[in-house]
């Protein structure tokens, strides 16, 4: 009487239950993510345009067209600038906030709540709050900067492309920096206190022990935070849309995709662009997965 035979009915029932419990997830993801994804890839090789007859195969024609499209080029430029500004600010600011939170003893959970609030709010509301602050005539930014003597007259901030991009980045950083801070804080809490004790006894200054102990130990968490910051900034839509609408000066890749598909109704041309955006997002994530292979084998 073999044990395997006795277990067989149980095993089969387990398989059935497993499939049953996973089935809804498979159905939802297959029909609403993977099927449209394949459709995107397929259609990006065809001309799908509700205003024109037929859907002829055009190969990579739309991708080539994308490379020669100056609006799309500007959107790439805007997005890359936003990513650079946002990722640098979120990483530096997020680490500083995490260190501060870690050092606060009394009322830390309240400070943490205040820090997280901007992340928890709808991005649209964040952008509206800052839209009012940036208002050229009555906004707080002009008033505060003039009182501080930084500027002599009121500025229409969104008249200048570089300023406009920087101000959009500020709103995005305001929302996303808490995420970096929380991820880094989790890593900080995992560092054994004795390490700092030992460093202090050895006469290490705070900065030295930060570089020698903290930084290497939070590096994996920083990698995760960096990936998240990059992907979120790369897919920025809401803040730029509320603050500057479809303005070419600040139009991000996602806004460009939206305009192409839903305003100009060039469906498949927009899909080709979204395929490129997806490939870059995937590449960033892969880069992270390859860099931190340790986590993958640890599973």
């Amino acid at each position: 009487m073999s044990l395997a035979l006795a277990l067989a009915p149980g095993r089969r029932r387990e398989t059935g239950l497993g499939l049953l419990l996973a089935l809804p997830i498979v159905l939802v993801m297959a029909s609403l993510v993977f099927y449209p994804l394949l459709l995107t890839l397929w259609d990006s090789l065809h001309r799908v345009d509700p205003m024109r007859y037929g859907t002829p195969f055009v190969g990579l024609g739309q991708y080539i067209e994308l490379f020669n499209d100056s609006d799309v080029g500007a959107a790439w430029g805007n997005t890359i600038w936003l990513v650079i500004m946002a990722v640098v600010a979120e990483t530096v600011g997020g680490v500083l906030i995490a260190l501060l939170l870690q050092s606060v003893r009394r009322g830390r959970q309240w400070l943490l709540a205040a820090v997280i609030l901007p992340w928890a709010m709808p991005p649209i509301v964040n952008a509206i709050i800052w839209l009012w602050i940036y208002n050229p005539s009555y906004g707080l930014l002009n008033a505060v900067l003039r009182d501080l003597g930084v500027i002599s007259h009121y500025h229409v901030w969104f008249n200048d492309r570089a300023t406009a991009l920087a101000l959009i980045a500020v709103v995005h950083v305001w929302r996303m920096m808490p995420l970096t801070a929380v991820i880094v804080l989790a890593a900080l809490q995992g560092i054994p206190h004795e390490l700092y004790e030992a460093a202090r006894i050895d006469g290490a200054r705070p900065w030295r022990s930060f570089v020698a102990i903290t930084l290497p130990l939070i590096a994996p968490a920083l990698a995760i935070a960096l990936t998240q910051s990059t992907i979120f900034a790369f897919n920025l839509f809401d803040e730029a849309w509320i603050l500057a609408g479809a303005s070419l000066d600040t139009r991000t890749l996602l806004i460009e995709t939206y305009m192409l598909a839903f305003q100009n109704l060039h469906f498949s041309y927009g899909m080709a662009l979204s395929v490129l955006v997806m490939l870059v997002s995937l590449a960033v994530s892969l880069l992270y997965v390859m860099r931190s292979g340790r986590g993958a084998t640890y599973e």
Partner: peptide, 28 residues
Amino acid sequence: LRFPGRDAIFALVVATLAIPAYTVMIPL
């Protein structure tokens, strides 16, 4: 539970975390 394709399905589903939801919006 063990069932055929378990790990592949999980990996595929979680991999979609890395692709922006907007990618599939037009065909959707």
